[in-house]
Amino acid sequence: MPQTESSTPRTEHDAEFVALLNATWFGANLPPETQVRLAALSRRYQAPAGTTLLTEGQLANELGIVLSGRVSLRTLVPEQGWITILTVEPGDIFGQSALVPPYRSTSTVVALQPVDVLAMDGPGLRAALSADHDLAAVLYPRVLQALARRLNATRLQMLDLFAR
């Protein structure tokens, strides 16, 4: 991976991916050079409804951003079957286990609708983050923001406020 410090997309691929990032709340308003770095690490794919994108316990090789469609984070409870803990909506991320040892998915991710995903290569992103502290300094707060939002929501869910 060339370590160029440029904020100008070098290829058509990068320019398209920077535009896609800017259309999501997770990727918008990151510094241009960060977006270019991320674009270079990304691929884009579509999957039909019902596709399992990640399996709980398996290696999470990509950090995904939902561009359109809806994916569910599920876990299997033997007496209850599959329980959907959360749905990930356009603009939000899934597969953040790709950044956290042991890099194994903590839930099974299934597309509920046809989805369009921008996926960043996990090992490549980890290598870039450990080599480039400037990149880490802007990307980690964004990841933290996404996780904190999820943590706060989970707390409210745990309170089961609508039970009474």
């Binding site: 329980i83 749905t87 509920l112």
Partner: peptide, 10 residues
């Protein structure tokens, strides 16, 4: 459960 295709979250 898995039959619900709508949103899940607060």
């Amino acid at each position: 459960d898995a039959t619900w295709l709508g949103r899940v979250g607060v």
